[in-house]
Simulated scan of single mutants.
Amino acid sequence: MNEDAARDIVRVAALGDLHVKETSAGAYRDLFAEISKAADALVLAGDLTDLGRPKEAELLAADLKACSIPVIAVLGNHDHECGSVDEVKRILREAGVTILEGQTCEVGGVGFVGVKGYGGGFGRRMLGSFGESATKHFVAEAMNEAMLLENGLRQVRSKRAMVVLHYAPIAETVEGEPEEIFPFLGCSRLAETIDRFKVTTVVHGHAHRGKYEGRTPAGIPVFNVAYAIEKPTGKPYALFEI
């Protein structure tokens, strides 16, 4: 997707963790209509559905008909729960959603790169690839997501770039969650990758009790846009001018 010429400012609305259920018909229709008036693009940071059921994706697709701006999304862990992830992606793509899994797209001169990300922990407490094969598989998944992100960032040609994740790249924006589950909320490997590129803004979800704002070690701003997080807009979505 390459939406029109570059603009001086692109307004991006971002939120995550909609958790659309089979009983959620029409729950987000008015919100998407409101966002369409406030922003030039909508970013969804994973957990679009509650259990990854196609019916849930269909309800979200129906609500997104009220959205008249480009919609860019990554999937979350909940979207994988039922093993119907390919069907969920098909339904949303047919509804016009650009789902990023290491790819890039551009709106108004802003490049968007997205991956789901994965767990593994942060900083010196980050899990290493050692010991049982199950541990090595866990770390390999995190490394693969970081590699997908790097490949996507290498494709960006615009001077402004937003990274879209579900899992957090830093510990700062998951603070408020129980420390025992930090390793399952994100991984520093994502931040290490981001810091090698010129990235304007990073958004993620997943940590419903986390903190809104933080920075990577190199100083790139990171925002937790999970639905439940309090945002400066006073709305469920954050709004960025990029």
Rank of each mutant, 00 (worst) to 15 (best):
M1S: 09
A5V: 10
A6Y: 13
A14H: 01
G16D: 02
V20Y: 03
A25P: 07
A25E: 15
D30Q: 15
V43I: 03
L44T: 02
A45T: 14
D47S: 02
L48D: 05
P54I: 15
L59D: 05
D63N: 15
L64S: 14
K65D: 12
A66H: 11
C67E: 14
S68W: 13
S68N: 12
I69M: 15
V71F: 10
I72Q: 07
A73R: 02
G76A: 09
N77H: 05
N77P: 02
H78D: 05
H78Y: 03
D79Y: 03
H80C: 03
V85P: 00
D86G: 06
E87D: 14
K89W: 13
E94Y: 03
E101C: 01
G102Y: 02
T104R: 11
G109Q: 13
G111E: 09
F112N: 03
V113Y: 00
G114T: 01
G119F: 08
G123S: 04
G128S: 12
G131D: 06
G131V: 02
E132Q: 08
A142F: 00
M143V: 13
N144P: 00
N144R: 10
L148S: 02
N151A: 10
Q155Y: 06
R157V: 11
K159F: 11
A161I: 10
V164P: 00
V164C: 04
A171K: 08
A171R: 10
E172L: 08
G176N: 09
E179T: 14
I181N: 15
L185V: 04
C187A: 06
C187L: 11
T193D: 00
V199K: 15
T200L: 03
V202F: 01
V203A: 06
V203S: 04
G205Q: 01
H206I: 05
A207Q: 06
R215I: 06
P217K: 05
V222E: 04
I229C: 10
T233K: 07
P236F: 08
E241W: 12
I242G: 07
